[in-house]
Design a binder for these strands. Structure first.
Lengths: 356, 356
DNA sequence: TTGAAAGCGGTACCAT
DNA sequence: ATGGTACCGCTTTCAA
């Protein structure tokens, strides 16, 4: 009972219809699962379809329906555990809802991000989830929403954009850890982020284009000021974009006259780099230096000492964004919302009192 | 000079053509960048296009060209650093080559994987990169290749499938670490993998459906036998699919009469779990137990002690697979190849001589 | 319930 | 170089 190898050129509804002895429209109805057909015809068509090994062409379907069943996701870097976890949340929900995900890395580059959005729009995705590289320049995001396709912003929001946003309570989290550090006597607290500025130095939060990070820095600065700490702007370091840069920055601050007694790492990749460097340099955590990192990455609990972190509900962030998007794609017209997910401080052992 | 908000219903070549006062065919030529057109017409059309804010519909284009500019990627779990790094490699190459990536997680489940392939085929991806959950049942992969779309297998290969494959030298790597362990006097070496069998116990390598892991176990068993170790099949533990399962398995083996003096973890997620558990249980690495893990995950270098690992060129694995696929999509008809990438053993400090 | 035919938004062949 | 037009594979009126 050898089957002849199903041929290469694709089988269409027309082929199936012909074999089943019905019209194209009728065959399409049973194959597409819409309209009404008699039981007899349904069986005939189904049989013909499987005999011919028919495979629907979603592209053609999308052409007429106007829905591609696809959502576009643009993140900074899927290699970063933060994003890979968020993307897992997104894809899980998307699959459940019958959508497929097109993933694009922006590499945190604004131009790449623009191209990505353009590509996604051209591919007629039904919706978008974007973690914008910079909040300042968002015309491409505007255009996306103008195209009528729903979009939700992930982790980083542009308040002014009037679009659904799912973020963590970054400012609050930063305030919390800063207070904690200050309570322990720290007066020289450095904040280290990958976000960069044109001159690679920090002046004001307005310099920071990444919403989540800007909010954290605002929280950090605010609490420091409240506590009467001066010149704290100088303690914010930007541009830790690669391990090498991070290395250089941290080494410089640690060997300077005014060295910090505590460092806040804006993400786990940076936190890891700081940890490694301290080892190399023989700086003992938390004795010589206290360390707090954002993102409860897996490694933070197995180091010696384990690292105190801000735990963000990353998976849930992605999940929530996807849920919101699915609702929008299903026609929910409610005004744009901003969902803020709570973080919590996981105190481990990388923070100690400031050295006397 | 307020622009009227570009309308929602999409602008087509016909619209542009009308405005530019040329035929649809001509407009399509300049918009699609094919054929030849006079400079004057080109300008007129371009002007009209931007005035109308024309956006090409890739779906329609794909319909006629038969190419979607999309590749489908099916991995076990994007949350796993191994896959997220490989996917980074894939997406980088894909973007360079002008392709977009549809990502689907199989969750290492064969049924989900089948559905994924079906979906991808329906969406008319131009090619596929798959990390098959199980080598034994591969009809869906057959079907994919039969559809005429190139496919390359990532990290796990089915020798018999006659399809391009990119893997690491898993057997060789396993042999290497096993020898190393034996040279250090270890006679009770456990191998721990997430792969599962129907009865959750290991009998023969043929039970193991994941190619890469099977090859590692074969290497492991082979070297053990050479060294005259007996009953080593009992030292292979399967089913460490979740932290909880891993916990239970490791705890059981560590508290049994015949406890291992060394553990080989088949991936970094498991390795991390073992490390954590040892801490909890007060088992000192490497004094009480030696540990080697596959995958040079970031955390392995910052623990105390740092963990000896098999470094796999994960990014390159993805990159190579994507390169190969792009060549195929460009018409390369050469016979299927199997590319084996070298791993290397990174000796850190989690391995010591076996206790006397 | 079924069929004929008109699109969807492009591409590509064939004339002119 | 340009225009006319027949598709691509499916959905969706509109009639029968």
């Amino acid at each position: 009972m050898e089957q002849s190898p199903p041929r290469n050129t694709s089988v269409t509804v027309a082929d199936v219809a012909r074999m089943a002895g019905v019209s194209k429209a009728t065959a399409a109805r049973v194959l597409g699962g819409y309209g009404t057909v008699s039981e007899r015809v349904r069986e005939a068509v189904t049989a013909a379809a499987r005999a011919l090994n028919y495979r629907p062409n979603e592209l053609a379907r999308s052409m007429t329906t106007g829905r591609s069943g696809t959502i576009g996701v643009v993140v900074g870097d899927i290699e970063n555990p933060f994003f890979s976890l968020a993307v897992r949340g997104i894809t899980d929900i998307a699959r459940q809802a019958g959508f497929t995900v097109i993933l694009i890395n922006s590499g945190e580059d604004a131009e790449t991000e623009k191209a990505a959005i353009r590509t996604l729009l051209a591919k007629r995705v039904d919706g978008l989830i974007v973690s914008p590289a910079r909040e300042s320049d968002i015309d491409h995001l505007r255009e996306a929403t103008r195209s009528g396709r729903p979009m939700v912003l992930l982790d980083r929001g542009s308040e002014m954009l009037g679009v659904d946003t799912v973020v963590a309570d970054d400012r609050h989290a930063a305030e919390g850890i800063t207070r904690r550090l200050i309570a322990r006597g720290h007066k020289h607290i450095a904040y280290l982020t990958a976000c960069d500025t044109p001159d690679h130095r920090f002046h004001t939060p307005a310099d920071i284009n990444t919403g989540s990070v800007r909010r954290r820095i605002e929280g950090f600065l605010g609490v420091c000021r409240e506590a009467g700490l001066k010149g704290i702007e100088d303690w914010v370091h930007v541009g830790a974009t690669t391990p090498e840069h991070t290395h250089r920055i941290v080494e410089a601050m640690l060997t300077s006259a005014q060295r910090p007694t505590a460092i806040i790492a804006s993400d786990s990749v940076i936190g890891l780099e700081v940890f490694k460097l301290c080892r190399e340099l023989g700086i003992r955590i938390p004795h010589d230096l206290s360390l707090v990192s954002f993102h409860d990455a897996d490694w933070t609990s197995v180091t010696t000492p384990p690292v105190t972190v801000v735990r963000q509900p990353v998976y849930k962030l992605g999940e929530t964004a996807a849920r919101l998007l699915v609702e929008r794609m299903n026609g929910d017209e409610a005004p744009a919302t901003r969902i803020v997910l709570q973080t919590d401080l996981v105190e481990r052992a990388s923070v100690a009192d400031a050295p006397a």
